[in-house]
Design a protein around this nucleic acid. Structure first.
Lengths: 250, 250
DNA sequence: CCCCAAGCTGTGATTTCTCTGAGAAACCCC
DNA sequence: GGGGTTTCTCAGAGAAATCACAGCTTGGGG
């Protein structure tokens, strides 16, 4: 069991670190190279150390020597089925939390019990924000201490609770839809940093989203109505660059 | 069916601990690897220390050195029958409470005699919530646990007694069916936390449930009629994410 | 100061999600 | 075995969310 601690990076982003200060280690297992690439990139960006494997045997072996703090595991692997992989992983690393990737339509496909141990899963196609958020949750909770505050993002008088999905501004509760919530979470995890529409699209929408890029503008517009309505605005446009969020004052 | 959600975890929940502060130890005995995996995962997540065995001899040996505070024992083992295992376990650990796992159609009168001593049993296929709850009960009653930790969950003016299965809201008694009770218990053990339908299905329904995911919606609907009927609602829907329970005010 | 690209937002079509009534089947207790 | 209870499927209604589109606004370079 890993006990984690948080620290604040120069950018103002809180990072998960292991007790000895070394970065968190995550093993990514998927047979599609494009997926492992995508995930590795996104997770490295979180400051985590990533190793990937393309099949069950590779996963078990990698787990043994890499000793990850969390595993992202596709349930559809070429050489062995997800449950077997899980079983073998658990033999070496009994407490490692696992984030499963499953197909959308695999409803009846033996999902039962998977989340039992505090594990979690997302369906393909996923959004990177979602994967990162879940993974953070898993890692945080696998640590001994459960500081609830860790699940709350704060920027100025705006708060977002990743557990309860509650959002408040100046103490007032604000209702957000699922997409609005994800978008705001992404902004708040990168306060005072300009995020391009492309970046936002890549992180908040599923990787196979094929729609118009102006959904971002649309959702920013929605968010502003709810977050900034009649107050000092916190969401700012940097024309030609993107958007950023920062505390109202200053 | 699945989208945004967080994992289930005992957050802010009172944990069972032994008098010396060390975690409770549970021995899981079953010959099906998938079952021991499933149980180990779920029970570890309760913060307990788990050891598992796949047959009678292994069980007896493990019990001897592991000295568990409780045992989960499948009555159908390959090498020796349940009663013999029980006998040998009791020779080493006379007071250890045992949770029997039996097939649905097993001769229940034989079990009935066994549970007289304060033991308990669940039939396969079981739900994790049920196993965890029974086990907690056994451990608490056996005195192995430190605190005479209360068996009553409270969220706002809603109370649920895990021992007597009594539920009240604002002082009024409420009758729930078994499934409704389990669902409410799961919600109340994770107050203010969004639980996805998938998670709920995983924990509250048996591990081999293959039905429609909308049973969850259905039972939420039942619960609301009984819990929230004509009052300030405590059960909330987070569209696209799941459900959560929280005190009415606030 | 004008113009155009970039950004904003109203409208409404479409899709998705949730709730719930009705009823079948299983279960349980006498 | 029978009647009440419980669990669960199915399907339809309704609500909510998502998104494309298009016209409007704005900002800043020339």
């Amino acid at each position: 069991m890993v006990s984690t601690m948080t620290t604040t990076s120069p950018q103002g982003r809180t990072e998960l670190l292991r007790p000895d200060g070394s970065p968190v280690r995550v093993l990514v297992v998927d047979d599609e190279l494009s997926i492992t690439e995508l995930l590795s990139m996104a997770l490295r960006y979180e400051g985590w150390q990533i190793r990937s494997a393309g099949d069950g045997h590779g996963a078990v072996q990698a787990a043994r020597e890499f000793r990850p703090d969390a595993v992202v595991l596709d349930m559809m692997l070429p050489d062995m089925d997800g449950l077997s992989v899980l079983g073998r992983l658990r033999r070496d690393l009994p407490d490692v939390p696992v984030l499963f990737l499953t197909a959308k339509d695999a409803v009846e496909d033996r999902i039962a019990g998977l989340t039992a141990g505090g594990d979690d899963y997302v369906t393909k196609p996923f959004s990177l924000e979602e994967v990162v958020a879940r993974l953070r949750g898993l890692i945080r909770r696998s640590g001994a201490a459960d500081r609830r505050s860790d699940s709350v993002l704060v920027v100025g008088d705006l708060t977002l609770d990743e557990d309860s999905h509650e959002v408040t501004r100046g103490g007032d509760g604000i209702h957000l839809t699922a997409t609005e919530f994800e978008l705001l979470r992404f902004l708040m995890r990168n306060p005072r940093r300009v995020l391009s529409k492309a970046q936002i699209l890549d992180r908040v929408w599923s990787y196979d989203f094929g729609g118009q890029a102006n959904v971002v503008e649309l959702y920013i517009s929605y968010l502003r109505r709810k977050i900034d309505a009649g107050r000092e605005p916190m969401i700012h446009t940097r024309r030609g660059a993107g958007y950023l969020i920062k505390p109202a004052v200053s």
